[in-house]
Design a protein around this nucleic acid. Structure first.
Lengths: 239, 239
DNA sequence: AAGTGGTCTAGACCACTGA
DNA sequence: CAGTGGTCTAGACCACTTG
């Protein structure tokens, strides 16, 4: 019974949809057990594989999980897990006043890159402008490998991950960021044309390869007004 | 050929693993086409369903995608998408100096909750302490619904989402956060025992139900030193 | 022992892309 | 047209949980 209407929608999506709605409307609450696979097979006259596809769809969305030998259960919602989209960070901004140097790192930089303070480091700094007003100041530090020439090439990459992609396979590293509030140094306040007391949003960024080697460190200072980061949590449709 | 060793590992995992490694090591680059399903069936002498399971595993991890009628392709890495874990926000902190009032909202609050400034609002404020030192100041605003009594009950919930979970099904809402840097108001600086110039990390948080109704608004001010948020991007194993 | 989820096969038909 | 991915069935065997 409860045969599914013969629309163009695949059967497995319809099954998933009905269960999903039950969860959304609260008919199924976190911890509740779902019908078993075989019950669902009967109810929808569908094959085991089809029913499993529905359920694994829901599992992937984080709505349900399974315990072998027992059954499927509704998950606890994870409202503390946020997604932060930083892909368009410098979109619409003009980069002026770029500068590239080779420096000896201070303690902060040496620690962030996990190198000795004797090791030379490439420092790339730039000021980002919007309507001829500075809105952000960006610093990037890369350990200087003698083998590779590229100081110039390094500059051309607007975004950070691209730099690392040159040194390792594109999936073989990850990024960590740390967000805080600070006052700027003299150098930064001058570039941003702001007072020293002005609170700045600071984003520290670490590029780390799959062997846990630090391949890059960045700091970005954002002026208030422009300096917002947005993140969302909770259920968002379209897997 | 290339028959898979008969370990305890399911076949589909081994297929997925081999492809995953090819991507990690750069043998397969973003945009490259994978072997077709039928080729993989032959190579591993596995059934279509098994091969598909491997590929959909990889697709779910974001490593590959499929184009019907064409084939499977290696994805572009998304190093700009971060995950931010805010579940343990107040862990290890003591909440002192809690306060609950019913107020008329100022413009900022009224806008955040999308209500008229005549509508009464519950304001819950508290100071969070670590080793008897204030580290964060937390403000929450909820539209006051006459129907529901609960002003007291509201206070007992340490965390924000739980409040909303009382008013709607646990999956039927989401949270948005906005991160910035600000100076504190007099009220905040007094609670945090800091100077006015002190830069504070500010987290605005909006609770929004599935019909886009605003059911809560919060502001949290974090003192430097304690005030860090961490987020990661890039490939992380274990789906 | 009966029921559950987890893996797997060997078929089938469809809609789509490209030469 | 031959090849691709997308959906689906009807079986099978296994390991696990629970009475």
């Amino acid at each position: 019974m409860s045969k599914v209407a013969t629309t163009g929608e695949p059967v497995y999506m319809q099954i998933a949809l009905e269960i999903r709605e039950d969860i959304f409307e609260g008919n199924l609450k976190p911890g509740d057990m779902l019908e078993s696979e075989s019950q669902l097979q009967n109810r929808y006259s569908a094959s085991k594989v089809t029913v499993r596809k529905s359920l694994s769809e829901l599992a992937q969305e984080g709505l349900v999980y399974s315990r072998p030998g027992k059954g499927y259960f509704v998950s606890e919602p994870t409202h503390g897990l946020f997604e932060l989209d930083f892909s368009h960070e410098d979109e619409g901004l003009e980069s002026v006043y770029s500068d590239v140097n080779i420096i000896k790192p201070d303690i902060e930089i040496a620690e962030a890159l996990a190198i000795s303070s004797q090791w030379p480091v490439i420092k790339i700094s730039k000021t980002l402008m919007l309507h001829n007003q500075p809105v952000a100041f960006d610093l990037k530090y890369l350990p200087y490998d003698k083998g590779t020439p590229i100081v110039e090439a390094e500059m051309h990459y607007a975004v950070f991950p691209e730099i690392a992609a040159e040194k390792t396979a594109p999936f073989a590293f990850y990024t960590k960021m740390r967000i805080g509030a600070e006052q700027g140094t003299d150098e930064i306040c001058q570039a941003l044309r702001c007072k020293k007391e002005e609170p700045l949003l600071v984003i520290h960024r670490y590029l780390i390869d799959k062997d846990e080697r630090r391949i890059g460190f960045g700091k970005k200072y954002l002026l208030k007004g422009y300096g917002f980061l947005e993140a969302v949590s909770g259920y968002r449709a379209e897997s």
